[in-house]
Design a protein around this nucleic acid. Structure first.
Lengths: 348, 348
DNA sequence: GGCAAATGATTTATCGATTAACCCTGCCGT
DNA sequence: ACGGCAGGGTTAATCGATAAATCATTTGCC
């Protein structure tokens, strides 16, 4: 069977049915004042009858704007950030884009060499398939990001990028949040020997959460009792970090994990060694993307409003596309600590 | 030293630099035989110098194809299917699309009234922003789906749609899988009084998994000892289902949940009532999208290859777009049972 | 009555890429 | 010397939508 040429209704079809030019039909549909009410009505009816939907492509070419925004996901992110993060981000972006009738283009970088990566970043952009882009937290070593920002294309980053002072971003204050939740263990629960399992230190989140931890233990004068172990946000690295400390005989009564996945991994390791949580050791995580609610005990964590961040970032992007460049350069949303069982709840 | 690529380098810019027409440049880049090797070389160099990237819009208009496929997500799915499902689907689609250098358009339906829903389905399609669409499991009551399929637009569905015999789909055999895992409880673990907590019965997955359960208990002659309780795939409904059975004093030694989320909810309810899993009651779930690995005990479940389904569906879609309509109409991938602790592992 | 303004369309041009159709120059053979 | 014919381009048209410029009719006004 021959591939049936799908009858796509074009503006010309609508115009012909009414007996006018396609130009007139265009003006009629956009309620132009030079078209009579009678004709407008006729065009609207014909359009409805035929099921006319403007070609996004034709319109895009003429208007020099795609009517779409891209969500760019560096290949590294997929490994570094859990799956749950993306779901929240996607939800937020979709909500904002739907409200404006704009399409969302998902641009995950194919995991090939670096040279291609830069190209992939730019291809979406330079092929004009999108009017702007949202980039989720990329590695600090990602050279393509700066290139992207400097092309002049509207870009909003999700996360913090102190090394790109001109970039517009929406994030949270990781340093402050990490300090707060560390202080929570120190003050509210009287813990004194803390461990921090870091995220990947080539990501700003990893760097900042580590700094927050260090600031807190330093402020409270327990820096010499604290240990920092490197992790990479994966459940396995959390497990391995705790396992190695227990085997080495390091003493600690509280652990600040840089995210929930690692906290879960660490929790498993502690359980396996007969260490009770939260009786013997208090642990806290970071993110609250869903996992920390499901474990037992539930993990006390910092709630990161990923969906709201994405929503704000998208709104901001639309502003910039519309030429509204003023507004906060680096926006930071508020976070809150969600207390569950893993830290030892307040006696109350 | 390269002049900073201006926001938009067009083919004309490349041609002018070489001193030829844009038409010739186009032919040069597509290696047309009428262009001399010398000119081709010059054009390629100029294109590279200027950082020329073909405008997807211009090309789309001319070629009458968008170079993009859409992932259509009915608004209901977001609630019905967990977050994790989408991640797997997205990964699979992206992989296939990236390999072909095709964009992925994410079309989540705004959660407004029904009338708009149909429109949203069709808008992506009729605005020609995508050359084809992948639709993830929609409700059987979804009237927009059939409309979409009958527009003639290439569409591949993920899941099973027996009521749309002409639609092309990639799914699994839910009935057989559900029967198998039910038999696993009956045969391998000697359970005799089973409960099935169903998914939403306006979704084919819910319907089929229920049928599989009923077939198994009937085959083994334990139908009169079995109970079916309605759920909706949510953790809460799993909890509520078990809670109500326990309160009602119903006797059972095995539960087949239609998905893992409900199994987790049910597990919580059982624990709270002091029922030991798997000693007193064996439970099994369905999906294995990630959750069942994390609980304790880990939940024995049917591994649904969501990513592979999405990948196959996308490849299939490309075939259809290319005019290759032959191939299996309703493809079903193999599943396997993943045994964890919740069913009581084989003594071995 | 005649010129200007209002009315309601129609042409025309444009966006970027592509392709069918046409057009120069040399060079060949006879 | 001239038809033929390749090589190597160039023009022009197309895809769909739409803004700007233009062009017919009426109608308004003195």
């Amino acid at each position: 069977m021959t591939p049936k040429p799908r009858a796509s209704v074009t503006l010309k079809d609508v115009a012909e049915r009414v007996g006018i030019t396609s130009a007139a039909a265009s003006m009629a549909l956009s309620d132009h004042s030079r078209i009579s009410e009678k004709t407008k009505e006729a065009v609207r009816n014909a359009a409805a009858d035929l099921g006319y939907v403007p070609s996004s492509v034709g319109r895009a070419l003429r208007n020099q704007r795609a009517g779409a925004i891209a969500l760019i996901v560096p290949n590294t992110s997929q490994h570094v950030f859990g799956h749950l993060y993306f779901t929240h981000v996607l939800t937020g972006i979709s909500a904002a884009a739907n409200a404006r009738d704009v399409q969302v283009l998902l641009s995950t970088t194919a995991d090939t060499g670096e040279k291609r990566e830069v190209a992939a970043y730019e291809r979406v952009v330079r092929s004009r398939s999108a009017d702007g882009a949202i980039v989720t937290s990329a590695a600090v070593t990602d050279e393509g990001l700066e290139a992207l920002v400097t092309t002049g294309l509207p870009v909003v980053l999700i996360g913090n990028f102190p090394y790109l002072p001109n970039a517009i971003s929406v994030g949270i204050d990781d340093v402050a949040a990490s300090r707060d939740i560390t202080n929570h263990l120190l003050v509210a629960h009287g813990r004194t020997h803390l461990v921090h399992v870091t995220g990947p230190l080539d990501h700003q989140t990893g760097i900042d959460r580590r700094l927050g931890f260090l600031a807190a233990v330093s402020d409270r004068g327990v820096a010499e009792h604290s240990t920092v172990v490197d992790g990479d946000f994966s459940e396995e690295s959390g497990y391995a970090a705790i396992e190695s400390l227990l085997v080495a005989g390091v003493e600690f009564d509280g652990v600040v994990f840089a995210n929930d996945d690692m906290a879960f991994g660490g929790l498993t390791a502690l359980k396996e060694h007969g260490v009770r949580v939260p009786e013997d050791v208090s642990i806290v995580g970071f993110d609250d993307f869903g996992l920390s609610r499901l474990t037992s005990p539930g993990i006390t964590t910092v709630h990161v409003p990923a969906e709201e961040m994405a929503l704000n970032a998208t709104e901001r992007l639309f502003d910039i596309i519309a030429g509204n460049a003023d507004g906060p350069g680096q926006q930071q949303l508020a976070v809150r600590i969600v207390e569950r069982e893993s830290c030892g709840k307040h006696a109350e």
